[in-house]
Structures are given as C-alpha cells and as structure tokens.
Design a protein around this nucleic acid. Structure first.
Lengths: 238, 238
DNA sequence: GAGTGGTCTAGACCACACA
DNA sequence: GTGTGGTCTAGACCACTCA
C-alpha cells in the first residue's frame, strides 16, 4: 500500500466516523503533512482521491471542507460494474441459465464493436441470470475467442469474470456504456417473465483491456421494475 | 492555462492527428520532459489526464501506449450532463414550454433529496423541452429558493444553467444520477406525444454545489426512441 | 543490467480568500 | 498581510519488463 492511499483511507475513516465533521474544515495540508510525516505533495494526492469521490471540497485560499452527506459519499457508490454480476450480487442466490453458447464468425456490427476481422471467431453467449429465484437480466454477450480461450459450459454457468481474472490474469481498463429504454421482445417476455407492454432497460456495454482492445460486447436487458442504473459524475476541474 | 494541461492537450493532438500511432509506444517520460522543458512530475500529471480519458495505457517497465481507437477517445465522450440541455444541444433549435412554475413547501421526499427543512420553499418547475420542433424531454425540477433567487419565467424559458453560471456565479461539483425505464404516464403521453405502451427513459438527478449542498433535484422523462444515455467508466487503479 | 513508469521529498512560487 | 490550496522543480528510490 502506497502512502497516499493509506492516508486517503485514514482521512476517509475520520470523515465517516465523525472525527472530521460535515460542513466544517479539516486540518490544512501543512498540518496534515506534519501529522503523517510526509511531504505536502503526498497529502495533496491523498486529498485528490477523496475529492474525486465527492467526500471533500477544496477552495484555494479557504481550506478543505467535508461535503454534506449525500449519495456521493456512500460506501457502495463506486462499484465497478464491469466486475460482473457475480461480484455485485454477493449475498444473493445467483443462478445462470445458458440459453445459447456457440462460436461463430462476427457480423458487421460485432466486427466494429470488437474491432476484429471477419475471420476471427467470437463466442456468442446468451445467459439468463436469476437472482433469488427471480429472472433478473438477459445477457447477450460476444467475446473474441483469442482473448478468452477455454470457455466451457461450467465456467459460463458461474462467473466468467472470475475465470478471466483468476485464470487468464486479464485486467480491464474500463468500459463504454449506452443505456436506453426499449419495448420488450417475445424473447424478453419469455425469459424475463414480463408483460407484453412492460418496458425493458437495456445496457449496452463494451469492456476494454488495458491495451485498449475490446474484450466483450454485450447487451443486458432488464425488467424495468427490477433494475435501475446509478452512478455519480464528479467534476474533475476545480 | 497550467503547464500540465497544455502538455496534455498537445499530446492529445498528436494522438488524434496520428503523430503518435495507435497501438505503439509514445516517447518515454524523460524524453518528453526534455522536449517540453518541464520536470518529469509535470509530464506524468499530463499523462494522468490522458489515461483517465482512456487515450493511453501505461505499463511499468514497458512504456506508454496509445490505446486502440474506441468510443473512449471520441472528442464528445466527456460531456458534463449537468451543464444543462442548452449547452448540449448547440446547433439545434431548442424551445422550452413551461407547464408549471410554482413555489411551494417541500414534501418528505424532496426534503430528503435536497437536504432542506420543511420551511424552506422550493421552486417546482415542469418544462417540456422541444428540440428541432419535436418534443424531447419532460423535466420535473425542484430547486431550493435560497440558492437560486430571482428565477423568472423569462429565465426558465431559456437556460437556467446559463443564468446560474453567469449571473449567480454558482459552480457545481458533480451529480448523482439514477437511470431507469418506466411505463409512460398520461402526462408523458400528452406532452411527449408518445404511444400508450411506449416505454420512457427516466433520468433522476441530484446536482451538488461545490460545498456539497444539493442544488437541484429533477426527473427527466424521455421518449424511449429519442434518447440513450452514454458514458465511459475508466478504471482509476492501474 | 538498462530502461521504463510510480512514488515521494523538500522546497519554491503562485492564485485566491479573508480580515 | 497571512494563510490557504495549486503548481512545478530536481532529484531520489522503487517495481517492473525485457533482453
């Protein structure tokens, strides 16, 4: 653990446990650098993290305030959604029903999204994820076979992301997402057990590896009444 | 303009114009610090920005790569949605029809979202935003009157955000958002001119000021076929 | 071992708020 | 003017990759 992370954690604790009170100043950077016996630059880097999380607000000339309590500073606000559903749903009963699992050549759209040539086979995977015995999401996933070799039915019944992370040692850099509402298709109605006129919340996602290669293209279709998509958007500029 | 921003801009240009080619190394930090005649720390700070934008990927021991072209590095990927619709829709014809504009005391839900007491009056505003002569979004907005004094019909017909930014000199720190799909209400059908069974994409939003005070609570209801919500989610940890 | 990026330092100067 | 946070420096050491 590097120093600035450790200091950020300590200050985060002091905010959540009330040592540093909401809407009041915390000690200035010079005092903190003396307390933690580090340089001021290191303190600033720790505070940068907390500012990005929305916990504090700094004003040149005035000092550093603890922000008012808000959804921004709940512990769970910063889930990385591309960690996969298995990780998000810890503590719940999660099953996966495999509806389709084939290897095929990509069509024009998939080629574009995954930035691959037409001769690169892709996995085409449709899974119904069932949380606490209720159908939760219908996932349509495409992955190039060269990046995720060795997928088996056993693996995709559980956590693909766990396999990729633990076995293949692959790490992600981030994801592009598009969220929209849609009418339900016959497919949705059959598997998600929703009404003919029920809306669907669709999350289209491309996950990227560290080197920028697309690793997964998926469309996740949710019942409108079981899922919303929450996130925070902090201003990077001061 | 500070040095690291200027350098980040210059390197961004070199990537977009092909001087630094996709999937290849860019010069190392020492070379760049010599070229720009700055310290290595300043170069690193410039590269930090580009890494957060998803343009480059750095690997200790190896160097800094230009990421493969992706939605992540399109110019428009980083719109701040709390800048308001007027700014996002530049180049389009935008009208606002005021459906409701009152001042009232907040109910329990609004009190919680805006973190105010029950004796603090709030503006309650319903606007239909019309883009290129087509109904685009129905916005239900609540704002505490103490933060945005002096709202008039003229202002809310145009850009509230412009008024707040230019006249009141208020700046935002970020926003909390929740996106969901919903069935259309009679209200939606009347104003958005959508079918009885058409889904609605709803964006619930709380915008925060620099000091953490909530400044606006709103629900924006869109026709499902005119709006999707796009964003990128970069991994902060390396 | 050489070269890369990540962290950290001690100090300097600047921009800004407030009295 | 004093105190705050933001930037920048020159250099050091470390962790990692690759030959």
């Amino acid at each position: 653990m590097v120093k600035y992370e450790a200091i950020a954690n300590e200050i985060r604790h002091r905010i959540t446990d009330g040592t540093y009170k909401v809407e009041s100043l915390i000690p200035d950077q010079v005092s903190l650098s003396e307390e933690f016996k580090v340089s001021r630059m290191t303190i600033k880097k720790a505070l940068d993290i907390l500012a990005l999380e929305g916990l504090i607000y700094r004003q040149r000339g005035s000092g550093t305030f603890v922000m008012k309590n808000s959804p921004l500073n709940e512990e769970n606000a910063a889930v990385n959604e591309y960690d996969g559903l298995t990780k998000q749903m810890q503590g719940h009963k999660l099953e996966s029903r495999i509806i389709k699992f084939t290897v095929e050549f990509p069509d024009e759209e998939i080629m574009q999204h995954l930035m691959i040539e037409k001769n690169m086979p892709v996995y085409n995977l449709v899974r119904l994820r069932i949380v606490d015995d209720k159908p939760y999401v219908l996932e349509h996933t495409y992955m190039p076979t060269d990046l995720t070799t060795g997928l088996t039915e056993d693996i995709i019944k559980g956590s693909i992301y766990k396999y990729i992370h633990d076995e293949l040692k692959i790490k992600f850099s981030g994801a592009y997402r598009k969220i929209r509402a849609d009418k339900s298709s016959k497919y949705d109605q059959e598997y998600l057990n929703c009404g003919v006129h029920d809306p669907i919340l669709e999350v289209e996602q491309i996950v990227y590896l560290k080197d920028g290669r697309p690793f997964e293209y998926s469309r996740s279709r949710h019942r409108y009444d079981t899922r919303s998509y929450t996130f925070i958007d902090m201003n990077k500029k001061i």
